[in-house]
Nucleic acid binder design. Sequence first.
DNA 1: CTGAATCCTACCTGATACTG
DNA 2: CAGTATCAGGTAGGATTCAG
Lengths: 126, 126
Amino acid sequence: MGKPPHTSYHSDPRVDALVDETIGRVADKWTLLVLEALEEAGEQRFSAIGRAVPGISQKMLTQTLRQMEREGLVTRTVHAEVPPRVEYRLTDLGHDLAEAFCGVWHWAERNIEKIEAARAAFDARK
Amino acid sequence: MGKPPHTSYHSDPRVDALVDETIGRVADKWTLLVLEALEEAGEQRFSAIGRAVPGISQKMLTQTLRQMEREGLVTRTVHAEVPPRVEYRLTDLGHDLAEAFCGVWHWAERNIEKIEAARAAFDARK
DNA sequence: CTGAATCCTACCTGATACTG
DNA sequence: CAGTATCAGGTAGGATTCAG
């Protein structure tokens, strides 16, 4: 493959593959959106996250949170109450990732007009 | 929804939705990997990108490049030759996005061990 | 070489029902 | 409330084949 020198400090292809794999698991729409919701509001319960991420199905929310928990991005705390209350919170690792993604959010905000224009031009050409 | 204050400078929900939509289109595995390949090697032809992104199918490469072209992230140059040569290059917009994603790459590199450990712990617990 | 077209599978999504 | 289970419909993605 040949991973970029400026992002790899060691040229171990095994590590490169792991980075790719990690990116693949972390760079999906729902993870990004959930990450952002938790970064903003801090510890939150299941349904609150669902409300903060419009369009996500309950199934995908569960699945995304499980995966994030598995990757060490969030902690899951079950309070032994009735009705049950489950709270999710970003770990330090998750918080760091959220910060890393901030740049992407800002890029998107800054460039909405350019993107819309590019799309319009592309669609008109076709 | 209530998009984070620290990422939104205007609280226009229409803009927030657009940002979400844009993130959704741009934050997928293949776009990220292709972006990185182009950022590293500069202008490149179709097959070279394919080689630089191991695991991508030709279909996904074509599709990803089309979408990136539509979003204004890359330019596509067809050289009238036999055999045909098509070269892709990042636009300024694409380059900016690549830089924004650098933080995520570095995060992944820095934290491979933590992620692997978290996963092992999670799987052992289950 | 580039990439469109096809087939086929796996997964996402939404809806609904059920548990602790 | 916070899930799990299931089913139907759609879509994304891989493999293969063919064309300019």
